[in-house]
């Protein structure tokens, strides 16, 4: 069972050119911040390396950070055999959000990424089937969970606000 610093050490040894850092100043857990375009290589290593064995993706969530004009994705990983956990965060530009998919590594990510696309507009590169999942397929009024979202007045003849 390893803690966050040891996991960071192992990742830095195997990916020397990557820009990885650990943010530990806020409650409650430490967050590993990684570059958005490398998350697929990092995920494959995290799942297959014999010291880490992160075989289960607990959660994948999108976050809108309006002040820094970024869209971030948080990954919560867990190892069922070695019993350790880690939180990873990647960020991408709000006007052109693109992150490689991890659904080849953990199939659990498939629908979570579709939901992040549906509600935030984050495009996941190489996703097998990226379309809206919760909102109607012909919803063209934007991405609802963004902080600057505004409600449309009518949808297919029905009045949306109260």
């Amino acid at each position: 069972m390893k803690n966050a610093e040891e996991i960071l050490q192992i990742l830095k040894e195997n990916f020397p050119e990557s820009n990885l850092e650990l943010k530990t100043d806020q409650p409650t857990e430490a967050v590993l911040i990684a570059a958005s375009l490398e998350i697929d290589k990092l995920s494959l290593f995290l799942r297959d390396s014999s010291e880490l064995l992160f075989d289960s993706l607990m959660n994948l969530s999108g976050v809108d950070e309006l002040k820094e004009s970024l869209l971030s994705v948080y990954y919560h990983l867990e190892s069922t055999s070695l019993k350790h956990k880690i939180t990873i965060k990647v960020s991408t530009d709000r006007n052109k959000p693109e992150i490689p998919t991890v659904s080849e590594v953990w199939k659990a990510a498939d629908w979570h990424e579709r939901e992040a696309y549906d509600l935030f507009g984050i495009i996941f590169l190489n996703h097998p089937d990226l379309r809206r999942i919760l909102m109607p397929y012909d919803w063209d009024a934007g991405y609802p969970l963004r902080k600057d979202y505004e409600n449309p007045e009518f949808y297919q003849g029905m009045k949306v606000p109260y």
């Binding site: 919760l134 909102m135 609802p144 979202y149 409600n151 029905m158 009045k159 949306v160 606000p161 109260y162």
Partner: peptide
Amino acid sequence: CGGPYWEHGYHVLKGVDRV
């Protein structure tokens, strides 16, 4: 009438008597 989701629900129809 839309229930507890009347104010901020962007995907909720506020009352089935609208259809």
